[in-house]
């Protein structure tokens, strides 16, 4: 749909996902299983990622620019959540 938005989001997502998962693996022991958080943990992670992306967008003052292209904050949040779910599903498939 919009190459820039997707690219940027994917990039951020990977970064944020990587650090969050990184922290998780550090705290828990057996590596592969610890990648899968419980549902509450997963939800928390997604919320954190959405907020982080939103914060980063504010910091880079790109919200108005994206809105001018017709992308509402809600739509962007949905894209982020969808992407998280896909990543999560992929991860679970890979590990379990």
């Amino acid at each position: 749909m919009d190459a820039i938005v997707i690219r940027v989001l994917v990039l951020w997502l990977f970064l944020h996902a990587a650090t969050s998962y990184g922290a998780q693996t550090m705290m828990e022991s057996d590596l592969p299983q610890s990648l899968i958080a419980n549902p509450v943990g997963t939800l928390f992670l997604i919320v954190v990622i959405v907020l982080a992306v939103r914060l980063e967008m504010g910091r880079r003052s790109e919200i108005v620019f994206l809105a001018n292209l017709g992308h509402s904050s809600r739509k962007i949040a949905l894209v982020v959540v969808a992407e998280c779910l896909v990543l999560e599903a992929g991860l679970r498939a890979a590990v379990g």
């Binding site: 820039i4 880079r60 003052s61 620019f65 994206l66 809105a67 001018n68 017709g70 509402s72 739509k75």
Partner: peptide
């Protein structure tokens, strides 16, 4: 919302700035 109005043909250039400092002019 601006996003919806934008889809109907409106554009808004704020007093601060429209463009994002982190990107190149070309990216916009």
């Amino acid at each position: 919302s601006l996003a919806r109005l934008a889809r109907s043909g409106l554009m808004y250039v704020p007093q601060a700035q429209l463009v994002s400092p982190a990107y190149r002019v070309r990216d916009h």
